[in-house]
Design a protein around this nucleic acid. Sequence first.
RNA 1: CGGGGAGUGGCGCAGCCUGGUAGCGCACCACGUUUGGGACGUGGGGGUCGCAGGUUCGAAUCCUGUCUCCCCGACCA
Length: 480
Amino acid sequence: MASTAQQGFVAELTRKSVDLSRWYTEVVQKAELADYWQIHGFQIVRPYGYALWENMQARLDRRFKRTGHKNAYFPLLMPEALLSKEAEHVEGFAPEVFWVTRAGGEELSERLAIRPTSEAIIMTMYAKWIDSWRDLPVLINQWNSVLRNEKTTRFFLRTAEFLWQEGHTAHRDEVEAREETMRMLEVYRAFVEEDLAIPVIAGRKSDAEKFAGAQETYTIEALMPDGQALQSGTSHFFGDNFARAFNITFQDQDGQRKHVHTTSWGLSWRTLGALIMVHGDDSGLIMPPRVAPTQVVVVPIRADDPTVKEAADRLVASLDERFRVEADFSDHSPGWKFNEWEMRGVPVRVEIGPRDVKNNQCVLVRRDNRERQTLPLDGVADAIQSTLDALQAALFERARQDRDARTTHADSFDELAGALKERPGFIRAHWCGSPTCEARVKADTGATIRCIPLDAPAEDGRCIVDGRPSRKRVLFARAY
RNA sequence: CGGGGAGUGGCGCAGCCUGGUAGCGCACCACGUUUGGGACGUGGGGGUCGCAGGUUCGAAUCCUGUCUCCCCGACCA
């Protein structure tokens, strides 16, 4: 019979299938990923959550190295004048900026902005660093945190301070800068799909949705299980907007003084929120093996039996080189440990008890489907590796199927509105390109154009709002 | 910013209407029995009820003010 403790757990961890929002908050807290600071909107990331972010960081950073980018670090504060240089940029960010107005007890003559993003700071330096075409391209990335005042916050998805990386590049001409914009979008797509196992749709943002100061913004959009979209990474082409505002010029081979063309691209720990929602189930998190803080947990049964303890120690030592492995010798009952580590999403559990020691075997359990195999201790590492690989692939496949099942087509405004009610998700529909039509959809349904997908086939149709001609479908959804 | 709700051990809550200085579940500590899907028994530790003021012999409880948080809406790269 279920004990009171069991009933308590089930009651506390409200089922994902019933209420994703509640489930999300509970699992983030119970799995010890994050807490909130007293000041609303500031998040504390606990060691387990931070390890996940570090693994994501390492994976993404490796991809940046392959594309020739180098990491650097720029200041947290900037004088107001800097932020104000690019008109659209400052206007777009104005409501979200935190300001420092006093220092050492005295009022500052010019207040300092805490970076909501670092374009203004980095472009100021690029103006000093760049003189010749030989100085280009400049390919720099920064891992940092930025601050934006947010009225409504949510663990990882929207916090006043958040960790991310922001890449900033400067190029000789438009063609090269455009190539860079698309290259980094593809890096994000590959990272999110291959390492995080989250399927995304890559595309261009409409003018209304693009980054403040950008000529074009590209995005990867993921779909959460509740049918809401989550922007998971953006790559911006600025043309020479920032170069003109910050006076970044170089002398080209032809002797002419020219403005550089710049890009920026960012991906935040928000994707960690996506990972939690997309992969988790009623028992808690499921971590994709490639970024899982702990890939394998060894749970000894009757660790007070010296032979079990010894066998578990040996097993952990043998796995330690190949995997991020943890052993749970805590005083809890086996059942408690099983549930605890499942909630934390550890992809593979290895049980070892008296029975196994006797037979020189162990029991391997896969997190997503709880499939268990009894295996000889020799060669268990290979079995673990193939289970991790299979799980990584299965997570992506399951997420892709779910995403596809929630993606519909709409050929009229009513169909779009109906689909948002009946089966929320991505909705592909025709749009004439006018901001008015876009605004109308947003006002009436809450859905926005998530992107104009790059891979959408040409297809003649009529705008679902005003009936004017359209040549391809765009992606609508409600968004986080 | 508009509407609604809530502040009581670490967490979740009851008590408030009908004032008499605090209780339950989980968690925590000790001992014992347990251990292959969130174990059980016994014994413990921990709060003065968001904050300020008022009424009263006496306030978690009544009154006034204030702060904070949550939900919905608005806003939001």
